[in-house]
Amino acid sequence: MLFTDPSRGHQHGYFDGWGADGCYHYCGQGQYGDQEMIRGNLAILNHMEDQRSLHLFRSTARGVVEHLGQFTLDSERPWYTTDAPDTDGEIRSVIMFRLRPVDSTTSEVELPFTPVTSTVVEDVEVEQNNVERMVVNPSSAPRLADRREAQLVTAYRRYLRSQGHEVRRKRIIPAGELKPLFTDLYDATDNILIEAKGTVTREAIRMAIGQLFDYRRYIAPRPDIALLLPSRPRQDLINLCHSDEVAAYAIWPKGDVYATSRD
């Protein structure tokens, strides 16, 4: 028996729901760290050879569940992995099972859970309020950094446009993935991909570099990369950005204009 409660599961990183592919996408067992194919997850995977039937129940009220029917794992792609927060807010890898209803009359589409078959890269307006959060702890620090990043992006976007630059964002859905990636800024005039961070710590700069490397491999022609920061980072971090392996530069506000580490 499998149980799902979308109203409460989100706080533990469980995002279950029907997909446009006709399957119910069911998050595996494990509230902390990367989920593994052990215990309950392994029991779901091996339910056919163990001659066990899968019955899915959804919570409708406290102590009350609705039987959604009997399911079996999809024969072509029984499961996949994706990213989701754990109970403490740290991003981890989770197992998503694709449960196909045994009763073919069962149909309901609540969430578009179907992975794309080929990579999608498209321009979106900067004003769209989509962010890719990299939460590392549940304290107020990530929320404060989010606000600083949003302010930095808004101000720098305004500055670039005042200089006649065409500024957009990129929305990227890698093949086989569910969730889109959103870049912070893309200067189409100079072909520069920009990632903003609300702090100049080593951790933030490392993260920004990793995100830029991830985004850039999907964009053609290959863009230059830059980090938008609230102030000048210390010299060793600038050296990291300028290293041959990274080949990036930093941007930060300086009065009414912006300074860069390549000046």
Rank of each mutant, 00 (worst) to 15 (best):
P230N: 12
K197T: 02
L144F: 14
L160T: 11
A247F: 03
Y215G: 11
A196R: 11
A247I: 05
P223R: 10
Y215E: 10
L178N: 12
A248C: 15
L160D: 04
Q151F: 07
A175Y: 12
L185M: 09
R222W: 04
L237G: 02
S140V: 14
R157L: 00
D187A: 09
E166I: 13
R148F: 07
K197H: 04
Q235W: 08
R171W: 00
E245K: 10
V246E: 05
V246K: 06
A204R: 12
R143C: 02
I205C: 07
G210H: 08
Q211K: 11
A204N: 09
T183L: 09
V167F: 10
D184E: 13
I238E: 13
G164Q: 10
V135P: 01
R157Q: 10
Q128Y: 14
G198E: 06
I219V: 12
T183D: 08
A141T: 12
T183F: 10
S243Y: 14
E195F: 04
D146Q: 08
P233C: 12
T189N: 08
A141R: 15
S140R: 12
L181Y: 12
Y159Q: 04
P221D: 08
Y218I: 04
A226P: 01
Y159I: 01
T183A: 11
R168W: 13
A226T: 04
I194H: 05
P223M: 11
A226Y: 04
T189Q: 07
T189Y: 08
M207F: 04
T154F: 05
V136S: 06
P142A: 13
V200I: 15
D244P: 02
R206T: 13
F213G: 12
S139M: 02
I219E: 07
V200F: 03
E132F: 02
M207V: 01
V153W: 01
A220T: 15
A188I: 05
Q235T: 14
L228N: 06
P180V: 09
R158G: 00
A175Q: 11
L193F: 03
N130E: 13
Y186H: 12
M134F: 05
L227H: 01
P221V: 09
L237H: 06
S162D: 15
Q211C: 02
A204V: 09
S162H: 14
N130G: 02
A208H: 04
A250N: 13
L178M: 14
L144K: 14
P230D: 06
M134E: 02
L181Q: 11
N129G: 03
A145Y: 02
Y156K: 07
N239T: 15
E127W: 02
R171T: 00
P138I: 08
I173S: 00
E203H: 03
S243Q: 14
V136I: 14
Q211M: 05
N137M: 03
L178F: 07
S162F: 03
R171N: 01
E177T: 05
S243N: 13
E127T: 13
I194E: 04
V246T: 15
I225C: 15
A141H: 13
S231C: 08
V246Y: 03
T199G: 06
R202Y: 09
V246F: 06
A150F: 02
I192P: 00
E203F: 07
L193K: 08
I172Q: 03
Q211A: 14
A175W: 06
A220L: 13
A247E: 14
D244G: 15
